[in-house]
Design a protein around this nucleic acid. Structure first.
Length: 586
RNA sequence: GCGCCCGUAGCUCAGUGGAUAGAGCCCCCGCCUUCUAAGCGGGUUGUCGUUGGUUCGAAUCCAACCGGGCGCGCCA
């Protein structure tokens, strides 16, 4: 209904200008969805906003506006209500014509963005030689959902995996492997990620205990950083084994097309970052470190805080790497927008990073940069999520458990309903439902707050959960199977007719999808899609209860089939924007 | 000490200037000879952390305070 809203705003503005004068030329009307169905479909507060400007009572202003505006092609006669709201009620015929115009559109009426932008999304970012854990879940799936949404709108999206693949820990690991498992350093597939994690723990222990080992670790770091071929080979083998494990998770989660550009990718650019900061006069040496002093960030003494780009020991840190990333994404990728899906704890870092990049001129004004922060995943009781033994939860284990729970649930239900299904069906549905449940539970919450992780809640078959949405879709597919309906070959020359309330309500909901996508892109909040899809599913289920489809007489039958098909396609597109799968039966 | 985020129904959470603040779960009641009842209908639930301010109008904006989390110069 986006275009509807724009047109109404245009007419309301024209009416305001013609009634009250040219000084309202820069006035922008606001129209919102009605807060209550009793108030119609849309409401506008413009009369209240204008009242003080034109020195007339709000209700009088509203009456005059109504008299001056003609919305009769779309709405019933507008009503003035309460303190001065103007309430709009859509005409059935208009809804029917709108549905008619999107029913043959594969994009169900969602226009492509114009112009298209190049959007670079920094997301996921696990560490080499460590397991992916719950901490990586949100960045990965929120980033993916945003990427899918932008792509659907026609933007050119680059998903970057800024993996932790460089640093002193590799010296430690390589030094330890030389003693403990030398073949791992020269032959592929000698060890897997799990082994590496164990070796890493041992290395850490050695490092803390033995001065000799500390020295050999440091030597390995130097060898690696100076490009010693054996060290590089060992490092690459370690990275490859980690990648395999990460890829397994990305496949499970269906997060495709991540471009790996780890810390090492930027190594060669770091000296330039520092020297260029120097030549533009931003660089200051302080206590041996090279820094840029920041505006608006103070230390305990109230002095400006430094943004350190070169440590006292001559090494670079993540600030330098991130600056190099910005430069590269702007210059080489030609990004119009940089998005960082990183935990809320990093917000100060990103604010500082942006300030320095702007000052240095690496981030031109026309390039947007946004940190998309999110809260933590907590365990029951609101404490940090961990296993019974107190360790961080591996993402793989978490996903496997979700699939196993979904399977148990499904098998129980099949037994109750005395249905018999193939092993292939069971495992396929359990997989889809389990993964969908985890992703949906996360994406459906406002990302900024922490949330409490609960298998029981997310796999619950009622409420705002993935299974509920998937079931609504399955119901439509059930109708098509039962009636032998091929939705793509529906004879829809007869236009849609909305007769019952449930049909009208469903129609209105279907037509709001574009507004929702708009707000998601605006605020980078995927939970809005979930909220919408839940509402759509509820409205569809009410329709399903009240309006028999296959047994209805024409023309209601075809009209309802069209509504079913549009619902299914909207659910499919909506869930696809979240990276959540659907099944035909469950 | 400074900065950021959070505080909404018993529980988990939506809602960031608009009309009587919503949903799901939980609990109770009703609905399967009809497209999968993983569904639908009905019922109960609130000092929107506190106090002040701005506004025609505040859960929403501002200030102070209380409670919780996170961050604050050489880890990333």
């Amino acid at each position: 209904m986006k275009t509807f809203l724009e047109q109404v705003k245009k007419r309301l503005k024209a009416a305001a200008v013609s009634t009250f004068g040219d000084e309202l030329n820069d006035f922008e009307p606001v129209i919102d969805a009605a807060s209550n169905p009793a108030f119609g479909d849309y409401q506008t507060n413009i009369a209240m906003v204008l009242a003080s400007k034109v020195a007339q009572p709000p209700r009088t202003v509203a009456q005059k506006l109504i008299a001056a505006v003609d919305l009769s092609d779309w709405c019933q006669t507008p009503e003035v209500a309460g303190p001065g709201f103007i309430n709009l009620r859509l005409k059935k015929e208009y809804l029917e014509s709108l549905l008619d115009s999107i029913k043959d559109d594969t994009r169900i009426g969602i226009p492509l963005a114009s112009p298209a932008s190049k959007i670079v999304i920094d997301m996921s970012s696990p560490n080499i030689a460590k397991e992916m854990h719950v901490g990586h879940l949100r960045s990965t799936i929120i980033g993916d959902a945003l990427a899918r949404t932008f792509s659907f709108l026609g933007h050119d999206v680059l998903k970057i995996n800024h993996v932790g693949d460089w640093g002193t820990q590799f010296g430690m690991l390589i030094a330890h492997l030389k003693d403990a498992c030398p073949s791992a350093l020269s032959e592929p597939d000698k060890v897997n990620l799990g082994d590496l994690v164990e070796f890493y723990k041992e290395a850490r222990k050695n490092f803390d205990a033995s001065e000799e080992f500390q020295n050999s670790s440091r030597q390995e770091v130097v060898a690696l950083q100076s490009g010693n071929p054996e060290s590089i080979q060992a490092w690459q083998l370690i990275c490859n084994q980690s990648r395999k494990a990460f890829q397994e998770i990305y496949s499970l989660l269906d997060v495709p097309d991540l471009i790996e550009r780890g810390e090492s990718f930027y190594n060669s650019m770091l000296p330039d970052v520092v020297s260029d900061l120097k030549s533009c006069g931003l660089l200051v040496e302080d206590q041996g470190a090279q820094c840029v002093f920041l505006d608006g960030f103070l230390n305990e003494q109230g002095e400006p805080l430094p943004f350190i780009v070169k440590k006292r020991d001559g090494g670079f840190n993540y600030a330098t790497t991130d600056l190099a990333g910005i430069r590269h994404r702007v210059k080489e990728d030609h990004a119009d927008e940089l998005i960082y899906v990183v935990g809320a704890g990093q917000s100060a870092h990103f604010a500082q990073l942006q300030q320095v990049a702007r000052k240095a001129g690496w981030l031109p004004e026309h390039v947007k940069m946004g940190h998309v922060p999110f809260g933590s995943v907590l365990g029951e009781g609101g404490k940090k999520l961990q296993t019974r033994s107190g360790e961080t939860v591996r993402l793989k284990d978490l996903l496997d458990e979700a699939v196993a729970s979904a399977r148990a649930e499904l098998e129980g239900r099949l037994k109750d309903e005395q249905r018999s299904e193939s092993e292939e069906f069971i495992s396929q549905v359990a997989q889809a439902v389990g993964i969908a449940a985890v992703k949906y539970a996360d994406l459906s919450l406002n990302r900024i707050t922490n949330y409490i992780f609960s298998f029981k809640k997310m796999l619950s078959l009622q409420g705002n959960t993935a299974p509920y949405m998937m079931y609504a879709y399955v119901r439509v597919q059930g109708i098509s199977r039962k009636g032998g309906i091929d939705f793509t070959k529906l004879d829809n020359s007869e236009c849609l007719k909305l007769s019952k309330d449930a049909e009208v309500t469903l129609a209105k909901c279907l037509l709001k999808f574009d507004e929702v996508i708009d707000s998601v892109v605006q605020d980078l909040m995927p939970n809005r899609i979930c909220e919408y899809l839940f509402q759509l599913s509820q409205v569809f289920n009410q329709f399903y209860e009240n309006c028999p489809v296959l047994n209805a007489d024409e023309p209601a039958r075809t009209s309802r089939l069209l509504l079913c098909d549009l619902t299914a396609r909207t659910l499919k597109v909506g869930l696809s924007l979240l990276g959540i799968p659907l099944v035909e039966r469950m």
